[in-house]
């Protein structure tokens, strides 16, 4: 059974469609990377799929009550808001009815390398550390599906890779993960599937090797990339912007 099923989902902002009839589903074991340039509609798609913003069309999560949705999917918003200087362990335990000794809470703190910070006020941590605390909170919700909006932004390289490996491990356990991100290299290496968005529409959906072609990267992102197969897997390195009108070949 699909963890999330989205059919013809559209979001209007004034006369403009910021999301245009998106359809996809996420199965257990999938780690879906949602890529696309700024303003392509990645966040809108995730938020509409969750039912956090009004949308036309159908999403299996948006149909649920807030309480039922909280058991079906965890959501990691892009805005990293921590309003009060509460302790890290309390913040993470919000996902488990404030049971600070719950196994899910301890597991999430351990997974995000945060056990030594547990009693510190979350607002006193650095930006990257706060991002990890918020990821731990979403993990502690222990849901079959995790949706994350640019979870790796602002993390150091080690923790970017660590976060992607954590999400990949969740997928390997049979959960589903869908995350938007801008780093094509990370997306190519860690995701099992990529959904590419451009101007509110899904323009490609498939395995990283099938989706990441020079033609698509030029078309959607207006960049020239170095793509190569290595013993370590697919490597994508953006090289240059393609300036309109100055194309050659």
């Amino acid at each position: 059974m699909s963890l999330l099923s989205v059919q013809n989902l559209s979001v209007r902002r004034g006369a403009r469609l910021t999301l245009d009839r998106a359809s996809f589903s996420v199965e257990p074991g999938e780690f879906v990377g949602l890529i696309g340039p700024n303003g392509a509609g990645k966040s809108t798609l995730l938020r509409a799929a969750l039912g956090l913003i009004p949308a036309e069309g159908d999403s299996s999560l948006a149909r649920l009550s807030p309480a039922a949705r909280a058991k079906a999917a965890a959501w990691l918003p892009q805005a990293r808001e921590i309003a009060w200087p509460v302790s890290v362990v309390h913040l993470v335990s919000l996902a488990q009815n404030e049971r600070q000794d719950a196994t899910e809470v301890i597991a999430a703190l351990t997974r995000m390398d945060l056990m030594t910070y547990a009693e510190r006020p979350a607002t006193r941590l650095s930006g990257g550390e706060q991002a990890r605390v918020l990821i731990a909170r979403a993990l502690a919700q222990d849901t079959p599906l995790l949706l994350a909006d640019e979870p790796t932004a602002g993390l150091d390289p080690a923790h970017q890779i660590g976060t992607m490996q954590t999400f990949a491990a969740l997928a390997a356990e049979g959960r589903g993960v869908i995350t938007s991100l801008h780093d094509l290299g990370l997306a190519a290496r860690h995701c099992t599937r990529l959904i590419v968005m451009s101007e509110g529409r899904i323009v490609a959906d498939g395995a990283p090797r099938a989706v990441l072609t020079e033609a698509l990267l030029a078309e959607v992102f207006a960049i020239r990339c170095h793509l190569s197969e290595t013993p370590e897997g697919l490597v994508v390195q953006p090289l240059a912007q393609i300036v309109p009108g100055a194309q050659h070949g």
Partner: peptide
């Protein structure tokens, strides 16, 4: 209110109406 510490969207996703 405890869940709103993480902002409105995160609170909603944790089951707050």
């Amino acid at each position: 209110l405890d869940r709103l510490t993480l902002g409105e969207e995160a609170a909603a996703s944790m089951g707050v109406d």
